[in-house]
Simulated scan of single mutants.
Amino acid sequence: MHEPNHRIRALHTDSTVTVYQAYTPAIGVPAARDGRFPAAWKRDRMTWIKPSFLWMMYRCGWGTKEGQETVLAVEITREGFEWALRHAALSHYERGVHPDRDTWRRELRRAPTRVQWDPERDLRLAALPYRSLQLGLSGEAARRYADEWTVAVTDVTPLAHEVHALVRDGDPEAASRLLPEERPYPAADELLAHLRP
């Protein structure tokens, strides 16, 4: 089956979307325990969320990289996720999407969210020929994410370690069965038209 180059794939319900982040235990453990980000979580910094579990594993080294030892699944409202997409700008200039570089720079400065499309990953964390969404949240978007959109926060570090162990042991079928069920997200064209290269 042909996989479109730029499509959002995510674990989602009728009302929520699950995204992934990795933090130090000082941030991740209380966030999972309390179901919300602690005061130490900086609401004034850019934070990147990823709907792809395996892309997060690539980024955090299965929860082994320093400062990324606690992997979180953050369930957010679809309403919030779609607000972020609607208010996003591409993180890089793309001919055909932007009339010129100056217009793109202005859009990027104004946008509270930005989108990056990175190669999706397989179980061995090798790049696949299609891309996965990363969503950067800053300013108003980061505050809304932490204080309004977050529905639940789960520590999925044990899952990351279990999947990794099965991959290392040469059992990709068992590893695949443990992966979150990421399906195409039903984003209307108007949500992504300004974000697809």
Rank of each mutant, 00 (worst) to 15 (best):
194 H>S: 06
61 G>Y: 10
108 L>I: 12
191 L>Q: 15
98 H>E: 03
108 L>Q: 08
161 H>R: 15
21 Q>H: 07
126 A>I: 04
48 W>K: 03
116 Q>T: 15
41 W>C: 03
154 T>E: 14
30 P>T: 02
183 R>M: 01
78 R>M: 06
1 M>W: 07
122 D>L: 13
52 S>V: 07
194 H>K: 10
107 E>W: 13
20 Y>D: 02
177 R>S: 11
90 L>T: 02
44 D>Y: 00
23 Y>A: 09
112 P>H: 07
10 A>L: 05
165 A>R: 15
82 E>T: 07
164 H>Q: 15
34 D>P: 00
46 M>Y: 02
144 R>N: 14
142 A>P: 04
139 G>K: 07
79 E>S: 06
88 A>H: 03
79 E>Q: 13
139 G>S: 11
116 Q>I: 10
85 L>V: 14
162 E>M: 12
50 K>W: 00
150 T>M: 03
187 A>G: 10
196 R>E: 14
166 L>I: 04
150 T>G: 07
31 A>Y: 02
159 L>W: 06
50 K>D: 02
25 P>Y: 09
113 T>F: 05
80 G>W: 04
36 R>V: 07
131 R>A: 07
179 L>F: 05
109 R>K: 14
84 A>D: 06
115 V>T: 12
52 S>E: 06
94 E>R: 15
26 A>S: 09
145 Y>Q: 01
197 P>I: 08
74 V>W: 03
181 E>L: 10
